[in-house]
Amino acid sequence: MIVLDIASVVLLAAGALFVVSGGVGLLRFPDFYTRVHAAGITDSAGAGLILLGLLLRTPSWETGVRLLVIMLFLALTGPTASYVLAFAARRDGVPIWREGDPRR
């Protein structure tokens, strides 16, 4: 049991780290396309690790199944939303940031 607890703590800590760093990135990166990367990290790595960490401490199998369903859902919709957003922004002509440009 103690092994599971430690693994869960490690996973949760890693997930929290990814989530916060993605949040900071969303605020500090210079343009829309770079920010997509920051937001994407929190949806995939952050959410995945936190849900895995929770999975290791589930009281019953029903809860575990629900966690897995959420994980599957986020794993499918997160990257799709990021891709579609970036695609639409490109099509609408949102400019790409280059070294030396002002932040926007």
């Binding site: 859902f73 499918l76 919709t77 891709y83 579609v84």
Partner: peptide, 18 residues
């Protein structure tokens, strides 16, 4: 429609039954 977005189409079709 959003037919240009192939990934979106495939994923949405996958999600519909769920």
């Amino acid at each position: 429609d959003l037919v240009d977005y192939r990934v979106l189409r495939v994923i949405s079709a996958m999600l519909m039954p769920f």
